[in-house]
Design a protein around this nucleic acid. Structure first.
Lengths: 240, 240
DNA sequence: GTCTATAACTAGATAGAC
DNA sequence: GTCTATCTAGTTATAGAC
């Protein structure tokens, strides 16, 4: 754990005036604890204690707990959304107007979540749990932030998927994307804390798959789900 | 301390002005608020204020907040699990050893969540949000309770689905059931608070479907997903 | 910049009047 | 059984010493 005492007084306090390390440590720790216990279930004392920094540090660096919460989410959602868009852009450029392959679109949506973060496995685990939680946070400011972030991305992917599965109605695609998001979030959350997973008394204890293998499974499942014939249409023709 | 829970099943409500009602009102209100703001984000003061009962009522009827939390979940999970098992029992009896139809198994899993509760629409909405939250609660006692409840049910459904889709490995079925659970929870949560849903800037504003229609969509999606060819196997034969 | 002390407030729980 | 007053402990946030 880093010692907070800074033996280097020659730091250009007047120009920079901040400690980049402490700030980052707080963000990392807060992200992990928010994922584990939720935002409401995590006090600033929990964070500063776990981070090994001073109690006042959060207020010094972020002002309020709410501002810290926003900073935690922004730090992750910003690059996540951008990477998703970037991958989709790449697919569309390569396709030159041709319809994309559904599996490729899904991979562009899933991959950025498991791609390498600067902090390795721990950060990716935190991210997974954080995102799976963020949809349920009651904080209205945070809700607005999330909506702002997902709006662009979801619209882009919604349109892309609509073109790959033209037989579905827009409303059907809308809900299936939500099914997909739920499957992704829950799977990553389960994956992140594998110890609680053995929910079943199973004879077969499943091994923990690699993240890549899990994503492959997710792509197979969600592609199959999105391509599935709607029961709504099936009901029109009672011949089955 | 002592168990302050009111164990007076034989006592009629009208005679003494005692509170079979208060207890139920507290449970209803707590369930709603837990769903909206999470367990940690809901204080006993929030509950008593919203329920219009006295601050001491929760401690009188349940002893502690934690005991109230458990009571809230037990009240819903018990009948939910039993109904799921009952429906699956019925399917298996009717099939007489023949493999079941995947869609029927899924419907037996989904339907009990939307089936009528005594309190109508509001209760069902609460239940949906409550269940979608319960997987993420950090409370260890609650986790144990949830595991106890889902263990039986998930094992039963796991085995049933394994028989309907014999080409999948047990590990694949295991994860696909988790995808399914995630899709269900997130969809119900989204459905319950439709106002936040318009996440997309869509040209097409989707109408809110009925619960039954949503479940039909879920069945189509998850059945398609479960039947999907695994990419793991597909990789073995690069002929496709 | 870091840390301590503490203010201002809210949490869950309880005791005792009615 | 209900309600009020109150206790203790924990919360965010701040002011000021080092």
């Amino acid at each position: 754990m880093t010692e907070p005492g800074n033996p280097n007084p020659s730091k250009p306090a007047a120009t920079c005036g901040c400690s980049p390390e402490t700030r980052a440590i707080i963000l990392d720790t807060a992200e992990r604890l928010f994922g584990e216990n939720g935002v409401e279930g995590t006090s600033v004392r929990d964070i500063t204690r776990a981070a090994g920094v001073n109690l006042g540090a959060i207020n010094y660096h972020f002002g309020t707990k709410d501002a810290l919460v926003m900073a935690v989410f922004v730090r992750r959602l910003e690059p996540l959304s951008q990477e998703r868009m970037r991958l989709l852009d790449g697919l569309e450029q390569k396709a030159c107007g041709q319809p994309l392959a559904l599996e490729d679109v899904l991979r562009a949506f899933f991959d950025p979540i498991i791609q390498s973060e600067e902090n390795g496995e721990l950060a990716r685990t935190s991210l997974a749990r954080l995102i799976s939680r963020c949809f349920q946070e009651p904080n209205p400011e945070l809700k607005a932030l999330l909506k702002r972030h997902f709006e662009h991305v979801c619209t882009r992917f919604d349109n892309a998927i609509l073109r790959t599965v033209p037989e579905l109605t827009p409303a059907e695609v809308f809900w299936r994307i939500n099914f997909l998001i739920g499957a992704l979030n829950h799977a990553l959350d389960m994956w992140a804390r594998f110890e609680w997973i053995p929910i079943m008394g199973l004879d077969h204890k499943p091994e923990r798959p690699s993240r890549e293998a899990l994503i492959d499974q997710l792509i197979a499942f969600t592609a199959g789900g999105i391509r599935a014939r709607s029961l709504w249409n099936a009901k029109q023709e009672p011949t089955s």
